[in-house]
Design a protein around this nucleic acid. Sequence first.
DNA 1: TTAAATCCTAGTAATCTAGTGGGAATAGGG
DNA 2: CCCTATTCCCACTAGATTACTAGGATTTAA
Lengths: 152, 152
Amino acid sequence: MKLSTKGRYGLRAMLDLAMHSEDENVSINSISERQNISENYLEQLIAKLKKAELVNSTRGAQGGYSLAKPMEEISVGDILRALEGDLNPVDCALINGNSQCSDMDCCVTKSVWKKISDSINDVVDKITLRELCNDSKELEAKNIKTNSGCKL
Amino acid sequence: MKLSTKGRYGLRAMLDLAMHSEDENVSINSISERQNISENYLEQLIAKLKKAELVNSTRGAQGGYSLAKPMEEISVGDILRALEGDLNPVDCALINGNSQCSDMDCCVTKSVWKKISDSINDVVDKITLRELCNDSKELEAKNIKTNSGCKL
DNA sequence: TTAAATCCTAGTAATCTAGTGGGAATAGGG
DNA sequence: CCCTATTCCCACTAGATTACTAGGATTTAA
């Protein structure tokens, strides 16, 4: 029941992007250095974020990435689902929104999985990148170095 | 971000135990047959549940397992944590209750992980085995066969 | 033209999952 | 006392997944 590095690194990368892409494109290389994440691996994570239309890319020299939408329109849920797939604790048609599940009536435990799933999605959908970005700026203002080697 | 079969099978096993252990001990073999879970594997799951003092065991002939506490005192959270370890989405000292985390102030994303963690634990701690058992009995009364081959 | 960048695909070591297998210890019933 | 049903315990493993690494093709600003 753990988030993989995809989700963890990916959220940090998006936050980094949010913090630095206001005036110019941000290269993978620069995120990689600031966040201490392997360049090649980060590339793959950002590819997923691009596919989910959360970031834009510009190829060529002086190219890089930027947010595809305003920060307030990107939720942590959007980011995590793009990277991890759905956030449901079990793969189940009912929970994944398909009411045609043939076992719908017979699985008592499914109600449990659905409640967990709903609560996770509720939480992450309510947090926007804007909020995290503000938190981060606040810490910076206090001269606290953010993400000093911590990989979470 | 998935629950493993440990948690899924284990919860079903506990529910099965709750449903059948009121008058007598329940053998691994009988749970295994009803729930369609490998006997040897189930053994390992129940060992964890025993270690967490959620079930009692009696060795020898006519032996088997029973709940160590009344159903209303066993939460789904107790069961899942016994089987899966903590339910936190990341391993992090702060989230695991150790306020000595050296990165406490510098990780913006940690607030996200903590919120997810809290919401999961809240949900599963509020559901008791008694409730699931009642749900299950209700379905039985309606002559709906429970858990017909569904492994969730 | 060159260098900086994204884009794309394949490989891989290490770890984890979901089991399997077998045997020792225990206890109730005949 | 013996048999059988049962828990208990430990070692092994095929297959999947994770977290990368490697390298080359493509694009574009200067």
